[in-house]
Design a binder for these strands. Sequence first.
DNA 1: GGAGCAGTTGAATCGGTCC
DNA 2: AGGACCGATTCAACTGCTC
Lengths: 382, 382
Amino acid sequence: MGVIETTKSRVQRTEKAVELPLELPVGKILDGDCVEAMRSIPTASVDLVFADPPYNLQLGGDLNRPDGSHVDAVTDDWDKFDTFKAYDDFTRAWLTEAKRILKPDGALWVIGSYHNIYRVGAILQDLGFWILNDIVWRKSNPMPNFRGTRFTNAHETLLWCSQGEKAKYHFNYRAMKTLNDELQMRSDWVLPICNGAERLKEGGHKVHPTQKPESLLYRVLLSTTEKGDVVLDPFFGTGTTGAVAKRLGRQWIGCEREGVYRNAALKRIEKELPLDESALTTMQAGRSAPKVAFGALVENGYLKPGTELFDKKRRWRATVRADGSLACGKQTGSIHGLGKELQGAPSCNGWTFWHYEVDGADGKDVQPIDAARQLYLLAVED
Amino acid sequence: MGVIETTKSRVQRTEKAVELPLELPVGKILDGDCVEAMRSIPTASVDLVFADPPYNLQLGGDLNRPDGSHVDAVTDDWDKFDTFKAYDDFTRAWLTEAKRILKPDGALWVIGSYHNIYRVGAILQDLGFWILNDIVWRKSNPMPNFRGTRFTNAHETLLWCSQGEKAKYHFNYRAMKTLNDELQMRSDWVLPICNGAERLKEGGHKVHPTQKPESLLYRVLLSTTEKGDVVLDPFFGTGTTGAVAKRLGRQWIGCEREGVYRNAALKRIEKELPLDESALTTMQAGRSAPKVAFGALVENGYLKPGTELFDKKRRWRATVRADGSLACGKQTGSIHGLGKELQGAPSCNGWTFWHYEVDGADGKDVQPIDAARQLYLLAVED
DNA sequence: GGAGCAGTTGAATCGGTCC
DNA sequence: AGGACCGATTCAACTGCTC
């Protein structure tokens, strides 16, 4: 059992990742059943498995809103399991393969709802996986319970597991703390559901019924992988895992048997641009602790890593990095800390000090980053 | 599958509760192993089982805070199980008895953490229980992760289940919505851990290592039981379930094998006073929707149900009810709505209109209920 | 008498490396 | 396998004391 977050071990891991990928179908979506597909992957070759398996939702008839409109629920054939037994067998099969292909210090993430997560959790414990945390994705904008018969189902659950009780695992503690305004990241994550421009649509209809938000994958990959790591998603769907992995400089492998999803995913990932080196560098353990407050804006795309920030009189410039820290030459720190250092001031409110360019009505507008924070608050507030 | 929340069914339930209790050890704590104790309870006789079983924590060595102080962990014998198999057998045994003693339209609540809840959830599904919601108790003040090795473990999980997929169950939708400021109650509940005066202590030491907050039981019992219902807690501990049940006019039965806990629970429940009829009446489904904003204050004990409120000139009086609504004779409503109706005014800010008496330095002080809100905000804000 | 500071504590599966 | 040594690591709420 342990945590690796030293420079030395990180370098070792990168070297390993450079040795192996020739055998690995990195950047590809394997066609067919995920268990079969995973059998083609070498043992102990993957750093992370992220899985969003079918939820085994047992919806009776159709579901209508109070106004009579129809809810586009999950009724696809791939989500039908006759009994718990069938679902358990399926779950045991893919978890067994996942365990085999993971490196000894690799990790597994699974997301699910109350319909399936208790079965998945018990089975992965039976297989020897060791739960490190269960994470609650608290949806800031869940679907209401239209009938008023239960509590609003406003969250989903993720399980984060190592290979076993004594196995090592990787956790970017400092990056998570930076992302959370210098407080430890908790086991409950408040994130909006996948909506708006991020949601893949074809002819007005959503391509996939359960597309996950990129902010969720962003946090998963940033917290438990390093640059260059190989991430496998056995239920790739429309490729959220692949898109975020590419953006964050991780290698990815997908398994998906539906051609429609595979095509949508490939198109989507094609468009994705990897962040550059400077933006990807995150805060490390052991360095002088920076104060950063706006990681959530970066995570949710309000400010992209790599964005140039500057003060109102453009005397200083800095680059936004993936974990919400800033870089200015060799100097790095939080929006507050770096602003303070550059000015040689006793303190600095980064929210009003740093500005960025926005596409406005005529040309570029300059706004303080606090404007982005306000937008984010409006979107997330409930 | 269904919900009972009509006046008719509620009356029927009350009649049933009056027929049976002569056989039931209501208001008693049964000594000994909970499975044995439950065997003495008649089949289909209990309305609700609330269970807080051992979590099977499997802790390793000692843990110290960064300042060097020692963390007082759960090391009691009752939390020790050698294997998952042993824990599963234990879980299946008590859940089987719980299922037998529950009425056909009764419900089960279980609370747990990631160490045990996936096993409990899978087993109760195997036994035929039907999960209605999983509820996340988000702790406003969890213990940090001192070593910086994982995400802060900031929540626990509750499962709410009916007897089966087609079984009826009870859900006080309107009371929950009232309690949540006229928004549907969600599956994530933000509540502080049990602390301060509520925490039972003996000689400066906590009596029970895992005492649950009364606000948690308050919400469980208010949402899924009716006045007069019989609630059984197979892991009674220091009697939080019994204390809140008595306060809310529910009947209770406990099972507890530790004499120290039984004695502490009996003393505690003895002191508890049941709320009177008016305070217990909650908002019913189908009535005109009231606007209420201070349910959280009631739930957290800042204003007890039954408290008398009055305007500054004491022209009108009203009683606080369990779900945060007010009653004045036959008139009921929210703090704003009732104030408006009584005055015949176009609107009324209940926060400043209604006052209550507080024990002050010399005799009684009179304060607006907004003062209680301020206290609550100070305590909860994050 | 209130503000402020120091001290305490809570269901926690809480190192890594070298010899 | 075990011991020595190095080094990194905490948030919110309550209690009690001083000033």
